[in-house]
């Protein structure tokens, strides 16, 4: 079972060096214990571009699809047998990156 752990942030600052170090430790653990699938960090959503090609012609919109104070600042995709394990990992991940985390199952 795979889960998406979304990192939620509401300021424009990037991870501090302490946070980055803690994230590295956490990532190593995910790999060592077989939970690691993929992860990545994102900056502020400002440079985002939305493409909608459902109609006759692709429409390009400058900016994120959703204007909100909180935004997706990064994510992990993890492998876990059930939600209890995923929530435990998310608890540690939230402490490591010092941000809120949303846990969502893949279909």
């Amino acid at each position: 079972m795979q889960y998406l752990m979304s990192v939620i942030h509401d300021r424009s600052d990037l991870a501090t060096s302490d946070e980055e170090a803690a994230i590295d430790v956490f990532n190593d653990r995910l790999r060592a214990e077989g939970h690691w699938v993929f992860a990545g960090g994102l900056g502020v959503p400002d440079p985002a571009t939305v493409i909608d090609n459902r109609g006759a012609q692709a429409v390009v919109t400058d900016g994120p699809f959703l204007e909100s104070k909180e935004y997706l600042a990064g994510f992990w995709i993890i492998e876990a047998p059930d939600l209890d394990v995923a929530l435990k990992l998310a608890t540690e991940g939230s402490r490591a990156c010092n941000r809120k985390i949303e846990v969502r199952p893949f279909l």
Partner: peptide, 10 residues
């Protein structure tokens, strides 16, 4: 079901 909340004693 979707999030796989386990059926077990913690």
């Amino acid at each position: 079901k979707a999030a796989r909340i386990p059926y077990r004693v913690p």
